[in-house]
Design a protein around this nucleic acid. Structure first.
Lengths: 143, 143
DNA sequence: CAAAGTATATAACCAAGTTATATAACTCAT
DNA sequence: ATGAGTTATATAACTTGGTTATATACTTTG
């Protein structure tokens, strides 16, 4: 298998996984949303533009997405004292618990597909996850 | 790192990868489309419903998607002689070369992120791709 | 202090899905 | 052989998650 085939398989499979997760959990919340929330949860408040870069969507896209999250009070805006054009977006407790809840749902949606996966298989997936997040992630883009 | 975190990282990273691929290649064609084309290319003609199951989208979703592909002559319909409600969808030469072209673009879009990845890293990704496609794939759903 | 640049917002749009339902064909029990 | 239920696809109306282009307000720089 050459590297293109590997990446293609990975992308197509991930698409399917995403859809399975969406269907099983019934959660209508997008990947970009979870991306933003997990960045905020892990690394603290960020500007809108930086969140957009991290999720690899456009700035207006992130602005729009955040409007919904602000309405649901999953995140809140903090005025950036150093630049009054900008906002810092922070995750709220409510957002954290939504994120935690989603993680639980995700795990239970996925579990059936991986019940009999051995340690060596999990290691490969973990390594892959680390490689990908190191390379296409994340907050480093902001810097 | 627990399994939920691993899968979450994988999903979020894959989302980013998908967006990078979309942005870099400028290709507006969806993952579900590539899923269908690669199934058709690898395993021959399939019914619409089976393609929908493979891509994990709804039947009307696949019907709609295929309308575009038929218009572009990337696939064509064959009457199913055993069941005249159904169609068999087959990939055309044109579809094959579109798929091949996309694979090339995908590879060149992704390459920069993986230039310095060692053999051990590639092995982990390859193994992961195989595990995922075995478990969330694919045509087996059709049977 | 004006000119250029940057952070976010708004508007108009598009693509890719969804659910609900219709239509036509198939299966099968009587 | 027919009517009841089931299955394969199609259509319609809608939602969501993004896009580009542009406006506004602030910041930086010469």
């Amino acid at each position: 298998m050459n590297t293109t085939q590997i990446l293609e398989t990975l992308l197509v499979s991930s698409h399917r996984l995403t859809r399975i997760a969406a269907q099983t959990t019934g959660s209508a919340v997008s990947s970009a949303t979870w991306s933003a929330l997990s960045v905020l949860s892990t690394d603290g408040p960020h500007r809108i533009g930086d969140l957009a870069k991290a999720a690899r969507i456009s700035q207006p896209g992130m602005t729009k997405l955040l409007q919904g999250l602000v309405e649901d009070e999953w995140v809140y805006r903090i005025a950036d004292v150093e630049d009054s054009r900008a906002w810092l977006i922070a995750i709220s407790d409510r957002g954290r618990s939504a994120l935690a809840g989603w993680r639980v749902e995700l795990a239970s949606a996925m579990a059936p597909f991986f019940v009999d996966l051995d340690a060596e298989g999990w290691q490969a997936i973990e390594r892959t996850a680390a490689i990908l997040s190191e390379r296409v992630g994340s907050v480093a883009v902001a810097a």
